[in-house]
Simulated assay, not measured.
Amino acid sequence: MQTTHGQSSDPQREKQLLEKLRSHPELLERFAAILDLTQSPSGTADQIEEWLVAEVRRLGNKAMQAWAQSAEEQAAEDLRQKTPRARVRKKRP
């Protein structure tokens, strides 16, 4: 629960969020970059906004990549369970 802007009163929720971020270091890196920008004393408001928008786009891209990888792994696992004799081959580069 949010008590005031930026303060959380739910330590369990914070712990779960940190665990999730630790399992996705690429997302943790993007969130850290966003937080760094919000605390940056340099640059104009327009520059900071431009940089934040770019970081949020990178965050979205990393989040979609993580989701797609998870979905692909789940689909492969579902196939293995439904058809144990199916062979999964990796795509050649």
Rank of each mutant, 00 (worst) to 15 (best):
M1L: 14
Q2P: 09
Q2G: 09
T3F: 15
T4W: 06
H5V: 13
G6S: 09
G6E: 02
S8D: 04
S9K: 01
S9V: 00
S9R: 05
D10E: 05
P11S: 09
P11Q: 08
R13M: 13
R13K: 13
R13A: 15
R13S: 14
R13V: 07
R13G: 13
K15Y: 07
K15N: 08
Q16V: 13
Q16C: 13
Q16M: 14
Q16D: 11
L18V: 06
E19K: 13
E19T: 08
K20M: 14
L21P: 04
L21A: 14
R22C: 12
R22H: 10
S23K: 07
H24W: 06
H24M: 05
L27H: 01
L28E: 00
E29H: 01
R30A: 10
F31E: 03
A32Q: 07
A33N: 02
I34T: 07
I34V: 11
L35R: 10
L35Y: 08
L35F: 05
D36Q: 12
D36T: 11
L37N: 14
L37C: 05
Q39C: 07
S40V: 01
P41Q: 12
S42C: 01
S42Y: 10
G43L: 01
T44G: 09
T44W: 00
A45Y: 04
A45K: 04
A45M: 03
D46I: 05
Q47T: 12
Q47Y: 08
I48W: 11
W51E: 04
L52Y: 03
L52F: 03
V53C: 01
A54T: 05
A54H: 07
A54G: 03
A54V: 00
E55R: 10
V56S: 00
V56L: 02
R57D: 01
G60F: 07
G60P: 07
G60K: 11
G60D: 09
A63W: 03
M64R: 11
W67T: 15
W67P: 07
A68Q: 15
Q69C: 08
S70A: 15
A71Y: 12
E73Y: 11
Q74E: 03
E77Q: 09
E77A: 12
D78C: 01
D78R: 12
R80V: 12
Q81D: 10
K82Q: 15
K82D: 08
K82C: 05
K82Y: 11
T83H: 11
P84Q: 06
R85C: 05
R87L: 15
V88L: 15
R89Q: 02
R89Y: 03
R89L: 12
K90A: 04
K91G: 00
K91V: 03
K91S: 00
K91R: 10
P93H: 10
